[in-house]
Design a protein around this nucleic acid. Structure first.
Length: 437
DNA sequence: TCTGGGGTCCTTAACCCA
DNA sequence: TCTGTGGGTTAAGGACCC
């Protein structure tokens, strides 16, 4: 079984489509005061920056880093290209995120380490040739092992764990390397004197489950004994769709909170409809200034696609969960999803009433917060732009009425930076996907 | 140092029902 | 009618993953 993991994916895509950034420290993440790092190039990691770290801290660690907001649309396109290559392999594939997948090539059944190595090397070369991205591959007898191996292979490498060597490989590793052991379980285990996978493997099943819980305990205990029979199988559709936002400063006004809930409901609803599903359960999530998170949910007998219905539920739930202090985060999640079959037109059964309603209500919905009265927002670092003369580029920075743009795309090689007037009529916003050409 | 946004799954408790 | 018992569902909170 193989685990394939793209190296520093978000940052690597930025370096690929903006060639000036190749070899430089890049941090991908929000620009706001409360954002965290979503991706860091290896040149940034050298200084201690990593994913999930508060961006403020990462910037302090790597003052020279270029900080860019994520361009998910670009990452999605490249991810698809990568996994199209992977899918050409005969066998099962399970994509587990935008940049990771398990693969079980039928040709490798019963193969020796050399054959596995060769096959993985070919896969990496194919991915590199067709996308320009590097992937690391781990190979082992089960999911956990393949995953741990790919981590050890990074960056741009391969690690094959031959049959029979599993325990020797795992024993010295910190228990935190196990997929499923996070900060809490790590602390619990450390307090019990268990800091390596070897020591963990020596525990009995009852000891393990008492420490870290039944489900994960049973699974990880089995793994430590070399038992990992989870199949590689394609994932189904999402079971939940949600939208949430953290405010730059806590909200104290109840009306502002309600507006935010309505916005998040609309955002989640948009994606619900796009996925062709209906939801039975609405959950509102509220995080207070003290970081304590409350959730309130309600389930209705029939699923709905109606924004007004879902948003009204969200609003009602909000009022029951407001903290005394300010509000830091608002989220709305829709679950209990069912495929939404468009009801037949002249049916008058009461069951379909809600959905029929939804159908007629949908087109009347505002398409989004579009307001042409509002002046276009200033250029922000990372924006894709197009200039009638210089072509496609990206904004490096702006201020004092000027904007600095680096004109380059994947295929131009490193480009020139030019400083222009912010209101230069030759300069317009551009589709980020154009940076792939 | 001060903690995102999108998810999955697990645990516990309460409740309804057969 | 009372007392278990056990399944299924809902709700709330958390751990964990990328």
């Amino acid at each position: 079984m193989l685990h394939l993991d793209l190296d520093a994916f978000f940052a690597s895509v930025e370096q690929l489509t903006r060639p000036t950034l190749a070899g430089r420290a890049v941090l991908v993440g929000g620009l706001g005061p409360r954002s965290v790092v979503a991706g860091a190039s290896y040149q940034a990691r050298v200084h201690g920056a990593h994913s999930a770290m508060p961006m403020s801290r990462a910037r302090r660690l790597v003052p020279a880093a270029v900080v860019l907001p994520p361009r998910l649309a670009v990452y999605r396109v490249l991810s698809e290209r990568v996994f199209d290559v992977v899918r050409r392999i005969d066998g099962a594939m399970e994509q587990i995120s935008i940049d990771e997948a398990f693969v079980e090539p039928s040709g490798l059944f019963g193969a020796g380490p050399d054959e596995v190595l060769e096959s993985a090397e070919r896969l990496r070369a194919d991915i590199r040739a067709s996308t320009g991205l590097t992937a690391s591959v781990g190979a082992g007898s089960g999911k956990q092992l393949a995953k741990i191996a790919s981590t050890m292979a990074k960056p741009d490498g391969i690690k094959v764990v031959p049959q029979g060597t599993e325990k020797d490989l795992l024993a010295p590793l910190p228990v935190r390397k196990l997929w499923g052991v996070g900060p809490v379980a790590e602390t619990t285990l450390r307090r019990a004197g268990v800091d390596t996978i070897g020591k963990f493997a020596a525990l009995t099943l009852p000891e393990v489950t008492a420490l870290i819980g039944n489900a994960i305990g049973t699974e990880l205990h089995g793994l430590a004994q070399g038992v990992d029979h989870r199949p590689v199988a394609q994932r189904g559709e999402a079971k939940q769709v949600s939208a949430e936002t953290t405010f730059d400063a806590d909200l104290s006004d109840v009306e502002a909170v309600r507006r935010a809930v309505a916005e998040m409901a609309a955002h989640a609803h948009r994606r619900l409809v796009a996925s062709g599903r209906a939801a039975r359960t609405v959950t509102v999530k509220i995080r207070g200034a003290d970081f304590a998170t409350k959730s309130r949910s309600a389930t209705t007998p029939t699923a709905s696609t109606n924004l007004a219905t879902l948003a009204a539920t969200a609003r009602r739930l909000t009022d029951g969960a407001l903290p005394d202090s300010g509000v830091r985060l608002i989220g709305v999640s829709l679950s209990g999803l069912t495929d939404f079959v468009q009801p037949p037109l002249f049916e008058d059964g009461t069951e379909e009433a809600d959905e029929a309603n939804a159908r007629s209500a949908e087109p009347a919905e505002p398409p989004g917060p579009v307001d042409h009265q509002v002046p276009e927002r200033a250029w922000r670092a990372g924006d894709d732009v197009r200039h009638t003369e210089h072509g496609h580029g990206w904004v490096q920075g702006s201020g004092h009425g000027r904007v600095t743009v680096r004109f380059e795309t994947r295929n131009t090689g490193p480009g020139q930076a030019r400083t222009l007037a912010v209101d230069d009529p030759a300069l317009t916003r551009a589709d980020p996907l154009a940076s792939l050409d």
